[in-house]
Amino acid sequence: MATPTMDKLEALEADSASSHLIAVTFRIRRFNPEVSADASWEDFRIDIDPKERVLDALHKIKWDVDGTLTFRRSCAHGICGSDAMRINGRNRLACKTLIKDIVSFDKSGAVSKPVTIEAIKGLTVLKDLIVDMDPFFQAYRDVMPFLVTTGNEPTRERLQSAEDRERFDDTTKCILCAACTSSCPVFWNDGQYFGPAAIVNAHRFIFDSRDEAGEQRLEILNDKDGVWRCRTTFNCTDACPRGIEVTKAIQEVKRALITRRF
């Protein structure tokens, strides 16, 4: 075991053992049409360990302060894609964002600004942080997100070289959280645009050596609401909690449309 780093580890563990709380104000965009037609900001000030997740803060508020605060979540460690939201103006997963990474401190050591939390943009807000995901999943379904093959199936597995497998590895990581699509200015202005997530999932199959429907998917994305709407602002790449190079994937689809080589 690498001993030189043990001091750092011990410090981390000592720090973890003696958790200290800080007071943070969470400024949350509330909306409930059962109560009011208008959305409004509401502040919640709570004490929280800075090593905890934003999701932990939302739970503290919901469980200890206001049970009506509503948001989606499930796995709590960045795998299920339920809890994409705008945190301090940036799309993130609440369960993958630690408090310490989003608060700043003033000279006295107190947290200087509230943390703002609101629903992702471009999809209709239904209640608090919950948006209507149906248009998002419809765009996904429209790109034929499944393997298409013809002819008899082999008895055993289809062979695929490690290199061919690597070709589309990045886009297999997608968890359909919508952080990318709802960070895209084109999508905000025109909900008809397929959006980055659908293109990522088309990419995943277009560049899979086993698939035979690449041409069809490219034609779908050649549409007026397809890849050409992308203005390469890189918001999607910045937003992706899985680290997928989304803009690069979109560019590769554009290039495939021009060269018809993939």
């Binding site: 393997l147 597995e157 289809r158 695929q160 490690a162 497998r165 199959f205 899979d208």
Partner: peptide, 20 residues
Amino acid sequence: AVLDLEKMGLPFNRTPDGAI
């Protein structure tokens, strides 16, 4: 069950000769 998933498109890691 594994072969069915591969045929459905699951991107398994591969051996040097391209098998699962």
